[in-house]
């Protein structure tokens, strides 16, 4: 019995380490090639999707358009609370926000037509890029926000 418990714990612990290693990705690290491949795949998929769905407003370098579309750099809207970020993409955003002293008041349309995996990849990319260096987002985390809001309806 204890052997079975130890095995379950071991598998769980191993998987957790694996996830943590993905989240704290360090490209200069020489070991852990499998981990780099996984997160690199997410980030590379995220980059392609970003270019298709986000780049025209938020720009190649994430700097946005002054006074129109907010930057994705140097702001906790991107590097902070994951759930707020996921909801922004799923449901869009309306109304005035201020980022780094500039007021933005355009409407961001909902992007709920994108899959959980696609949104997770895009958000992982923008959290990793543009000098943000924040952790990636998993598709389960996107699904959780989507389900939570569907249950509320």
């Amino acid at each position: 019995m204890w052997i079975k418990r130890l095995m379950v714990f071991g598998i769980f612990f191993g998987f957790s380490l694996y996830l943590i290693s993905c989240i704290n990705r360090d490209p200069d690290r020489s070991s852990g090639e499998t981990d780099i491949t996984l997160s690199d795949t997410i980030l590379s998929v995220g980059k392609t999707l970003y270019e298709t769905h986000c780049l025209s407003c938020h720009q190649t370098d994430g700097s946005g358009v002054p006074g129109m579309y907010p930057p994705l750099t140097n702001t906790d809207w991107v590097s902070g609370d994951k759930n707020r970020l996921i909801e922004t993409v799923l449901y869009g955003i309306k109304g005035e926000i201020e980022i780094n002293g500039m007021i933005y008041n355009q409407e961001m349309p909902p992007q709920a037509y994108l899959s959980d995996h696609e949104i997770a990849s895009i958000l992982s990319y923008i959290r990793d890029e543009f000098g943000n260096g924040a952790s990636i987002i998993l598709k389960q985390e996107v699904a959780a926000m989507r389900n939570k809001n569907q249950e509320l309806k």
Partner: peptide, 10 residues
């Protein structure tokens, strides 16, 4: 200019 943010003045 690749992004409008690159422009010093507009």
């Amino acid at each position: 200019i690749m992004s409008p943010g690159d422009a010093v003045h507009r």
